[in-house]
Amino acid sequence: MMNVIDNFLSDGDNSMRDLADLLSARSVDYTKVTTAAHLIKGGGNSLGGCRVVAAARALINASLIQDKQSCETSYEWVVNEYYHFRDKLRTLYQMERAIAHSESRRRG
C-alpha cells in the first residue's frame, strides 16, 4: 500500500504540473489535458480519493467538449481536492514509516 501512495504522490504532482502548463498555454491540447486528468483520477480511485476522482472526472468531461472555461473551473476544483488528499496521504505515509521504524528498533 505504501508503494501505491508513494507512486500517487510523485506521479500526481507531475500530472498537476502538466495540467497547469497545458491549461495556461495559448492553445490548449485537450487530449493531453484529458490524459493528465485520467492519471489523477486513476490514482485517486486506487486510494479511495472520491473527491479527487469527482473533480478529475469533471475536468475530463470539460476537456472532452473542449470548453476552456469549464476546464479552468474544474482544474481549480482538482487542485483543491488533490492537494488536500495529498497532504492527508503524506501524513499517513509518515505515520506508517514512524511505526515501522519504531517496530524495527524494538525488535533489534
Rank of each mutant, 00 (worst) to 15 (best):
E81N: 09
D18R: 12
W77S: 10
I99F: 10
L59W: 04
V78I: 12
G43I: 09
V78Y: 08
R26N: 13
S70R: 10
D29M: 04
Y83R: 10
R17D: 07
S102L: 08
V53Q: 10
S63K: 02
D11N: 13
V28Q: 07
N61K: 10
I40H: 02
R86N: 01
R97I: 13
A20T: 10
V33R: 00
V4R: 11
M95H: 07
C50V: 15
V33L: 01
R17I: 04
D67N: 15
L92H: 08
V52G: 09
N7D: 13
D67E: 03
I99W: 05
V33D: 02
I60D: 11
A20K: 09
V79K: 15
F85R: 03
Y30F: 15
T31S: 15
L23E: 10
R57S: 14
A58N: 12
R86G: 01
N7T: 07
H38M: 06
A100E: 12
S15C: 06
Y30A: 10
S70G: 00
S10D: 07
Y82K: 06
V28I: 15
S104G: 00
D6Y: 07
L9S: 08
E72W: 00
V28H: 04
L19H: 05
E76M: 11
D21I: 10
T35Q: 13
N14L: 13
L64A: 08
D21A: 12
F85P: 03
M1Y: 07
V28L: 03
Y93G: 01
L89D: 11
A100Y: 03
G49I: 05
W77G: 00
L9N: 04
R97T: 10
R105H: 14
A36D: 00
G49P: 03
F85S: 03
G48D: 08
K32W: 05
S10A: 09
I5S: 01
A20V: 02
R57I: 06
R106F: 14
D6T: 13
